[in-house]
């Protein structure tokens, strides 16, 4: 097991990568990316059994699908830091002739991406398809997926949420990034999610909670717990409360940084709050 301190170091570097990616092209989604940096780091450096040499079919390995594709910077950085592709390639984010597209895509052949996402609501269904295939093939590895909380407003999500328990898709661990914010404002104002835990539970899911999705220790603990609960007839969902923009002081507490890039001064300020732990690209 990786030391928590080591994971934190990686997550800090991932955050620097996120800010530098979106600054480099003056576009992208830093808020949700920063909030999920700890989760991605835990997943790829502690939880999942995966192979950075990358095989599309993912036979014999754990696999992850990002449904809320707009937080691509955090995924790209994590994949690059985990060895899927050269770290230097992050500098091409959202630029012409790059494999590092605005939203995750397979089209340019970026290792680590297995399906395009960005148009919201689709990733959970794709993850279920992969989970069914693993069961058919006798592959006991797990399928992980992340959705946003605003994304739960999409109807297709609930088609998938209804399907998985009925079909006992118990090799699937879905995490919902409950940061409470979306482009137009707070989720509770735009379209309230109501009793989110009750919704998943009554659909038939095992529900786990991460009270602080920016606490590496808690993330790792709950993800391990989720793994231990797999294979018992029910799909598992983790409701993970994160802070959009964490830990940059001027980015937290607002939805303003959902889809806006920092300018030069803001980048300098933000990077000053994050130690360069593994070396910038």
């Amino acid at each position: 097991m990786a030391e928590i301190a080591e994971l934190k170091k990686i997550a800090t570097q991932v955050r620097r990568d996120i800010l530098r990616q979106v600054h480099g092209c003056a576009s992208g989604h830093p808020g949700g990316s920063l909030g999920c940096a700890d989760f991605f780091t835990a997943l790829y450096f502690e939880i999942m059994d995966h192979d950075p040499s990358f095989n599309m079919k993912a036979a014999g390995e754990d696999v992850f699908f990002l449904s809320n594709g707009h937080i691509s910077p955090v995924w790209y950085s994590t994949l690059a830091r985990a060895g899927y592709f050269p770290i230097a390639e992050l500098a091409t984010f959202r630029k012409l002739n790059s494999r590092v597209q605005g939203h995750p895509a397979t089209h340019e052949g970026l290792p680590g991406i297995r399906v395009a996402s960005g148009s919201l609501g689709q990733g959970l269904s794709v993850a279920i398809g992969m989970a069914i295939a693993k069961k058919l093939d006798g592959d006991d590895k797990l399928v992980f997926a992340l959705t946003g909380d605003g994304e739960l407003q999409e109807g297709q999500i609930w088609e998938a949420v209804m399907f998985a328990p009925h079909n006992k898709i118990d090799n699937l661990i879905v995490t919902v990034d409950l940061n409470g914010r979306q482009i137009d404002g707070d989720t509770k104002d735009v379209l309230s999610l109501g009793d989110i835990e009750g919704k998943w539970r009554t659909f038939g899911w095992e529900v786990l909670n991460i009270q602080d999705g920016n606490d590496m220790e808690e993330i790792v603990k709950v993800l391990h717990q989720a793994k231990s609960m797999s294979g018992q007839g029910k799909p598992i969902v983790i409701l993970m409360r994160t802070e959009m923009g964490y830990p940059i002081d001027f980015m937290v507490g607002t939805h303003k940084w959902h889809g806006a890039a920092p300018n030069d001064a803001q980048l300098e300020n933000a990077l000053g709050q994050l130690e360069e732990t593994l070396g910038d690209y």
């Binding site: 269904s125 794709v126 398809g129 069914i132």
Partner: peptide, 8 residues
């Protein structure tokens, strides 16, 4: 979506 996952 499930079909896309199966095909993957």
């Amino acid at each position: 979506g499930i079909a896309a996952g199966l095909a993957t």
